[in-house]
Design a protein around this nucleic acid. Sequence first.
RNA 1: GGUGGAGUGGCCGAGAGGCGAGGCAGCGGCCUGCAAAGCCGUAUACGUGGGUUCGAAUCCCAUCUCCACCUCCA
Length: 474
Amino acid sequence: MTLHLYDTATRDERAFTPLTPGKVGIYLCGPTVQSAPHVGHLRSAVAFDVLQRWLERSGYQVTLVRNVTDIDDKTLAKAADAGWEWWAWALKHEREFQAAYAAVGVKPPAAEPRATGHIPEIVAIISRLIDAGHAYEKAGSVYFDVRSYADYGTLTRQALDDLSPATDSPTEDKRDPHDFALWKARKDGEPDTASWDSPWGPGRPGWHIECSAMSQRYLGDEFDIHGGGLDLRFPHHENEQAQSRAAGYGFAHLWMHSAWVTQSGAKMSKSLGNGLLVSEVLAAHEPAALRLALAAVHYRSMLEYSPSTLDEASAQWARFQSFVARASEKVGAVSSADVAAAALPDAFVEAMDDDLGVPRALAVIHETVRAGNAALTAGDDAAVASALLAARAMLDVLGLDPAAPEWAGERAGASSSAMGALDFLVKADIEARAAARAAKDWGTADAIRDRLAGAGIVIADAADGARWSLAADS
RNA sequence: GGUGGAGUGGCCGAGAGGCGAGGCAGCGGCCUGCAAAGCCGUAUACGUGGGUUCGAAUCCCAUCUCCACCUCCA
């Protein structure tokens, strides 16, 4: 089986064929940087990061573009409420998003274009739409004429007459209530810095046009995959597609949408007040555990988030970490190059090729780890070595190789020198405890263990001596 | 009203006609001075009612419940 992906537009899964052999262009709708990132935002980032990693592992050269929509009605409104310049407000949140993405190991995209940096491209595509008879100017604003484009609604199977009217701008200027703004005329009270010159007078871009302009600039008239959260299908993606295709571009060949994070069945969102901020979660849990929690559910299924979600993910992560650490100690560390070149188990490949079946892929990883642990107990070094290599290679595809640089030293964010100093101190206790145990002085041995446990240091005895680790966060 | 999605064992979650994915928690065991970790074992699971079939969680019909998009949303 080769890679098959589910296309939201056609609602079926089919073999993935890139436009250019060996290369894949992906446009991912990034954040509207008007507020702090919550875990739901990270879900789509992680899902498409796994897609990128799997494509790369499959031999493709991937160009992933993830935009930043740094101006829109809400950004202006929230910045004004906070007494901030809108551009400073947007950049503050853009940085928070970047930090959150980096924390959970999302690879930096090939390009991260901002809407405000592409006004000329936006003006150009709007002009093209007007020339083609798909857009019209009214009172300094420009609207997309949905009735002029027969395929409007095909992405999400919407019939115009059944839709509620678009409310992004005053209806009275529109030919049809479903028309939406491509260019918004500057309004009184809006800051001068939020306005650009255009053939239709000063103003700013509407919400959807920036993606049409930027995808075209970085990926060309036609590209392989367009991604984003499920909630962007309508109106955002529908409108994007209408604009780009009506302007004469082939646009996206395949649409992929990631589902959201729910709590008690309800979608996590800022407006419901149930958004869990990334900063809050990372204050209590390891970033890798958060990544694992977000990746563990198939990207098209809702992810039910509860207080135990991160505890479970932490337990799984500790299991992976522990196996990789013990196995590496026993049979020697594996180099990154070997991990990248290692053969992947067939069941893992089949799962990933089937529309990124991460849950099934994870099951293969768990089976491999179990076999590896059994081999450790049995002293079968050859089996340990092969399990270690396979496990790391599979975990690497998911961005969760415990021995990879981004995770290897993450515990407590400690520098290696601090960990070295800690190791020196703890070793002294371990030696004292070993002496007590040798003398069968269990009271002293247990007291030392309890004292260390109180400091978050876990002691585990083994046949060849005790080893210590920092307790998992809770 | 229109469009789409979901109901699986205590919990999270795969699967999509025929040996009960996997994880977490629990219980029993091995190991351990005791633990921890690890390993082994352990479940009357598929919203409800019908139907098709030798066989249905998977197909068909009906029905209930929940969620989402059509304001901003990953």
